[in-house]
Design a binder for these strands. Structure first.
Lengths: 205, 205
DNA sequence: TGTGATTGGATAGTTTTACTCTCCAATACT
DNA sequence: AGTATTGGAGAGTAAAACTATCCAATCACA
């Protein structure tokens, strides 16, 4: 399959496929001559994954590249690979130094009985999300944090129980599952809010 | 307080505060003369909210404006106001027409026993998230959808149980809670994944 | 009361990101 | 033979979110 057929198969302009090639999101095809290369099903799959990461998860090209590099070449330690993957996901939060840089997140994770690893990007992301809610005048109570944390841990446990046995597949499953299912989780939360609102329709006014 | 004091109070450049004023994200101060206006605590709070929506939730200026307009002037029907608010949140998904435009989302919501309102933007968002996961080669099983849906409904129920009684406050709480707590939920999910991975550390390799 | 700093408001410039377009010589199809 | 397409490189574009510059009208204080 040549580049135009590949582009058609995924529904993208050829120029965009070329752009992804240049950006290293898509592995080059097999060159059959100076001006021809041949692409196969694996390129179609990769391109669909790229579009899902950029279009649905909302990653930038740079972030998508970082995730794809981990999927292509994962270490065999799930924990650290997942840590690097989460560091590539938005929001980009710079790591802080100093004495107790993540007080809210540390307290929250302690209350939840979860590991607190200040190297892990999600800790900084949590800190900044908690600080933002607080500064916007809607701080998150301990009770709410506990409830959220418990429920999301059940959700994570569900995910990891279904992890494949083979190490590479396990890393890929976990990294992509964390990223690709996020929009689903967000949409379901919004829908659940709406559903609950519907049940209480007709607020006292 | 004049504009520079306001900017200092929130830690933003004056030019950015002016920009938010121009964009209608921040209510104008009280003009005290042709070249002076006076701002108060309400402007500080609003600016913090703007920063939380743009910086933490990741909204565009346009999306933030839409949310703020709903907060400023909510209808007294929670359901429809929340519907409009969710329509302003990313990802922006165009509404589809035609026969059964949201098959995956319809099936999912039916299985969960939730209302299916095709007018509601989150339905389109769910459809597109499910389609993206599927096309990326990681489709979401019915079992997983059920598990996610059940857990997120518990989370939503927790939120709405704590809704204030007064109608305007209730709408504000629900709209801002849906938006502002989303990054917290996302970060907690990532952390829960890491925590579970840590418990299973040392994959068979 | 003068005088240097600040203000609101308007306009223009900058930076980043994600494409999209144009070229071109080298094939490939018919 | 002749038209179309390709890979590859480079330039161009469009939108978004600031950021900087100007300017005339105040302010603030020495």
């Amino acid at each position: 399959m040549r580049i135009s057929a590949l582009a058609d198969a995924v529904g993208l302009p050829v120029a965009t496929v070329k752009f992804y090639l240049r950006e290293g999101l898509l592995q080059p095809g097999v060159a059959t001559s100076a001006t021809q290369a041949s692409y196969d099903e694996s390129h179609v799959r990769r391109l669909r994954l790229v579009r899902a990461l950029i279009g649905s998860v909302g990653l930038s090209v740079q972030q998508a590249r970082a995730i794809l590099e981990l999927v292509d070449d994962p270490g065999d330690d799930l924990y650290s690979t997942l840590g690097r993957a989460v560091g590539a996901l938005p929001p980009a939060v710079e790591r802080r130094e100093g004495d107790d840089p993540y007080p809210r997140a540390r307290a929250a994770l302690a209350a939840l009985g979860q590991v607190f690893d200040p190297e892990y990007a999600a800790v900084a992301q949590l800190e900044s999300a908690l600080a933002a809610a607080e500064s916007a005048g809607m701080p998150i109570s301990d009770e709410r944090l506990q409830a959220y944390g418990d429920l999301l841990r059940k959700l994570a446990a569900f995910d990891l129980e279904r992890m494949p046995d083979e190490p590479h597949a396990a890393v890929e499953y976990t990294v992509l599952g964390t990223a690709l299912y996020e929009p689903v989780v967000v949409a379901l939360r919004r829908l659940a809010h709406q559903d609950e609102a519907a049940r209480r329709r007709g607020i006292p006014s």
